[in-house]
Simulated scan of single mutants.
Amino acid sequence: MSEQLDILIFGAHADDAEIGMAGTIAKHTALGYRVGICDLTHAEMSSNGTVETRMEEADQAAKVLGLTARTNLGLPDRGLYVTPDYIERITAEIRKFKPRIVFAPYWQDRHPDHIACSALIQESVFNAKLRKYLPETEPVNVEQMYFYFINDVYEADFIVNVTDYYETKTAALSAYRSQFITGQGTVATPLNQGYVERVEARDRLMGQKRMLQYAEGFVSKLPLLVDRFD
């Protein structure tokens, strides 16, 4: 029996969620929220690292962030398409953890897998609530779905102040040495040519909009509900 999560974050590859929202994850786990990450692939097509090292790095990052769960569906890297089989597997993951909130990559990004992941999660969140879809499992109505940025940044609907948790974000990203650090046998990629520094600069710019040191931005397809203005 899987533990119910408050928040479930999907990424195409291990490190996607950390790039986009590790500060927000750390902030919520510190407050006692049950947070999980589901990586869709083992990133087996990555230019650097191996499946085994990526799994070890993901486990290390999970410990840094205090995750309740981290899973991997083993879908093909660079083979993510919106298919009934993939939607079923992701829907089953949502029903297993019963999250109140789901995060997915923003639907525009330079990496096609991130775009495909976004589309798959949107389809699966919708199907998860249908009682006649996969009737052998209990339907789950996700209360909120939000989108985080990975490579490309667009206008955010809201931001989260992660200033007090930015060291944790940096530590989580540092777990992915095979991706962000150059060494013997590595090849040059956008990820090991100052990428982490650019992520930090992005988060500084996002925070500057509200006079914060660091913030992470998110998008919602639904209007944000406000009970009152304080």
Rank of each mutant, 00 (worst) to 15 (best):
E3Q: 15
I7V: 07
F10A: 04
G11P: 07
G11D: 11
A12R: 02
H13M: 11
H13T: 11
A14G: 01
D15C: 13
D16Q: 07
A17P: 05
M21S: 10
T24I: 03
H28Q: 03
L31R: 10
G32I: 13
V35H: 08
G36F: 01
H42T: 03
A43M: 00
S46I: 06
N48I: 03
G49F: 11
T50K: 09
T50A: 03
E57R: 09
D59K: 13
D59V: 10
Q60C: 09
A62V: 10
G66Y: 08
G66E: 09
T68A: 11
T71S: 12
L80Y: 03
Y81R: 15
D85A: 08
I87L: 01
E88K: 06
R89Q: 13
R89S: 09
I90R: 00
I94C: 02
K98V: 12
K98L: 08
R100W: 06
V102K: 06
A104C: 14
P105A: 12
W107G: 08
W107E: 08
Q108V: 05
D109C: 08
P112V: 07
P112E: 07
P112Q: 14
C117G: 04
S118P: 07
S118K: 01
I121A: 01
Q122C: 10
Q122S: 13
Q122R: 15
E123T: 10
E123N: 09
E123G: 02
V125Y: 03
V125T: 01
F126N: 05
K129T: 05
L130D: 05
L130I: 15
R131P: 04
K132N: 15
L134E: 15
P135R: 10
P135N: 13
E136N: 12
E136K: 09
E138S: 11
E138T: 12
E138N: 13
P139F: 06
V142L: 08
F147I: 03
Y148K: 03
F149A: 00
I150Q: 13
Y154N: 12
E155Y: 15
D157M: 02
I159C: 06
V160E: 02
E167M: 07
T168S: 01
K169T: 14
K169A: 06
K169F: 04
T170K: 15
L173S: 13
L173C: 12
S174I: 09
A175W: 00
R177Q: 10
F180N: 00
T182V: 14
Q184A: 15
T189P: 06
T189V: 09
P190M: 10
N192V: 01
N192Q: 10
Q193H: 13
G194Y: 01
Y195L: 01
V196K: 04
R198M: 02
M206W: 09
Q208A: 15
Q208F: 12
K209P: 11
M211A: 11
A215K: 06
E216M: 08
E216A: 05
G217T: 02
K221A: 14
V226H: 13
R228M: 11
F229R: 14
